[in-house]
Nucleic acid binder design. Structure first.
Lengths: 249, 249
DNA sequence: TGTACATCAGTGAACGCGCGTTCACTGATGTAC
DNA sequence: TGTACATCAGTGAACGCGCGTTCACTGATGTAC
């Protein structure tokens, strides 16, 4: 009541220099003509939020704005629905998964058994190292998007098909050299894929359970579900993935 | 302005009998002294919403109110957070899963191989018949609830332990009668559990994929992951679950 | 070389909406006397 | 038996908040002449 100062909205430097510089990173705007870069920044921001929270419902357009330091009207020109953002996050993550599977396959060329393990382990490693990213990819429903006419709108479907194809290809080669007794390569690959998914998804959801060593269990699971010859497994090239096999925690 | 009638709030029947009876089911209130029944109605309503939408974020306290025909202040006396409601839905569903697994086990007493298949199939059938319920159970993170002091608040953990124990018990018996060569029953049961989870979860999330016959794949998966003797599987009692084995769709 | 104008990448304030929550209330059922 | 009161199961209106969206704007960069 005493020193009511008449609201004075700007009043820039009454108590010294405000010095907000280094505390607020203060995003600088994109260069002239490159406004579309904001689209990628939005997806980056949403990915960061998902990695942090693991919760799709924490993705709101406004939350992404706060994350990347931009105001809500900016994002509205690119997205009108948080689900669109999440869809793009998912397809980008799926693309990265396919790439790392392809790299693992490439790195073990000529050794089908090592190749099979490496490709599977690429999925497993992604899921174990980044459970929240993995969740977003595989727990999202309607992962195939349908448009109004009933067609599948799909950037994601071919990514999955390609990824799965790497598994099928490796097991096919294993059968060709007599390392696997599989008589239904497709179905067995589906079984392995589902098995790995469960091995990643369940332990990251149920943390009170006394899980055994999952790395070993993965190898056992792959060997059994694909009908691999244990001798062939034993003689396969061993450090089967690009990444260090079991990053000590 | 002309015929301002002094607000007259009730003004019950000015334009004939309103006749809203059969159009609005108009929930009738719980009897005197039984207000706590509303708690169960709330969980029923939330379960119905989840079964319909499969989406946790469609559970809001107000949505549940609309579902069961009650106003928001009523629910506030029982729950202040939608997550509490979902937690109770999850533990009830987990209890039902355990019960149906126990029933399947009981029904196949004396035949460990049939028992093992039946117990696993109880989980599988639940997941395939009610994918949305299944999702809610197993895709919920922090399924073990932690209270402020770091202790596990758990109605759910023992339910999972008991359910899993039925699998372990069946496989242990299989080993005892020489039907399985498993040398690590616990780990193999974890593998089967994860495998079944993947076999339920992935196909219900990725619907564009040309999934093979999953019923057969489940049997193959169980047989291989638990080291069951194929001969023992062939001679096991066959209609292994209480429910009809594969309800024609 | 200027200078007027167009285009661009955003901002700031305001909106309507659904959410969880509050507060005082209503009307039916039980209970003391 | 009646009557006053207490308890119960809710309701109805209003609130503050975060959301997505709108509208007019700002200031920097490019372009025509």
């Amino acid at each position: 009541v005493a020193n009511t100062v008449k609201a004075s909205p700007p009043s820039p430097a009454e108590d010294g220099p405000v010095e907000k510089g280094p505390l607020e990173p203060k995003r600088q705007r994109n260069p002239w003509g490159q406004g579309d870069r904001l689209r990628d920044e939005i997806i980056d921001g949403a990915t960061a939020i998902l990695e942090r929270t693991g919760n799709e419902s924490s993705i709101t357009l406004r939350a992404v704005c706060r994350e990347i330091g931009v105001t809500p009207p900016s994002i509205s020109r690119f997205f009108t629905d948080p689900a669109q953002v999440i869809d793009l996050v998912v397809s980008r993550e799926l693309g990265q998964m396919r790439d790392s599977m392809a790299a693992a396959s490439e790195a073990n060329n000529g050794d089908p058994v090592a190749q099979l393990f490496a490709v599977i382990r690429a999925v497993y490693d992604l899921g174990r190292a980044h459970p929240n990213r993995y969740r977003v990819i595989f727990e999202r429903r309607f992962l195939p998007l349908w448009d109004e006419k009933g067609l599948v709108m799909t950037e994601t479907a071919p990514l999955i098909t390609e990824s799965f194809g790497l598994v099928v290809s490796a097991l096919t080669d294993c059968v060709a050299i007599g390392a696997s007794t599989s008589t239904d390569v497709f179905a067995d690959c589906v079984a392995v894929w589902c098995g790995v998914h469960g091995l990643v998804a369940l332990p990251s959801a149920i943390t009170t359970f006394p899980w055994p060593d999952l790395d070993n269990l993965l190898d056992k699971m792959v060997t059994r579900l694909t009908g691999l010859n244990p001798d062939a497994v034993a003689t396969a090239r061993k450090p089967s993935s690009q990444a260090p096999r079991r990053p000590a925690r």
